[in-house]
Amino acid sequence: MRKSNKAPFIWLAPSLIVLFLITIIPTLFLFYTSSVNWELGLPWSDRTFVGLQNYLDIFRDFLFQQAVKRTIVYTVFSVSTEFVFGYIIASFLSRKSVRWKGLLIGTLIIPMTVTPSIAGLIWRLYFNPNYGIINYFLHFFKIAPDWYSYSLAMSSVIIVDVWQWTPFVALILFAGLSALPSTPFEAALVDGASKLQIMRYITLPLLKPIILIAILLRGMDALKMFDVVFSLTGGGPADATELLSMLVYRTGFYQTGMIGLASAIAVVLLVVIILISQLFIKILGEKREEV
């Protein structure tokens, strides 16, 4: 039935050509700009080739090291919180007796579709120490944290991420839980296993690939987080929430215009995320073969 080996390539050609032009060429160009010394505003011809100097510079740079640390803290805290709450919500949704599941799922869909830059802006109002709704609720407990302060700014960003993306983790895990076979659970109940034992030895191992998929997807998103931080804290106060993406923005565009350095940071971020995505792809491939 198949006419020739060339057939698939005619179908693939448009996407191959377009993706080559709009992704491969820009990426190569990014690698190139990461090896030049050039400032925004100068004529393009004023650039000088510096090889790997930009990379050496950023790795020695205190701001970069701090941004890496913050990005890791941000990613670890938000993803793990999302996983814990997501798992609890997913287990709750799997209870047979819970009614209004449609309403609950509809509710969960809303935060993750809210435009992230807008979510940052709105939560900025909610976090306002004087007029914000959050401190209004907290005053019943006699606490009034200053969410804009240096020590709490990172927590505010994490809270917004957790609000937006816990539902995503919850819905993935809920879908995963619903698809689990029932036999192992019945057998465990017959053997008198406790709820915790069932979770530890049956549910979590069976759910492992799906948990990994959820965590990796969230992890990659958290590593490249930009819009929420931009509108919630702008990286501040005093660098407290300066994540890697914000550092790229500030180095390359907002304050200094050091395109070479910004490109080098961007390449580091790109490489890290592509490496993680290979892990994701591997798990995805294995999962697809099962089906």
């Binding site: 820009p26 160009f29 990014l30 700009t33 490249k224 961007a266 592509i274 290979q278 792809i281």
Partner: peptide, 19 residues
């Protein structure tokens, strides 16, 4: 194709801006 989708916007946007 899938890993293209994962690339961080902040990295891709620099060459887009310059080009």
């Amino acid at each position: 194709i899938l890993s293209v989708r994962m690339a961080p916007a902040i990295s891709v946007v620099i060459p887009y801006f310059l080009l």
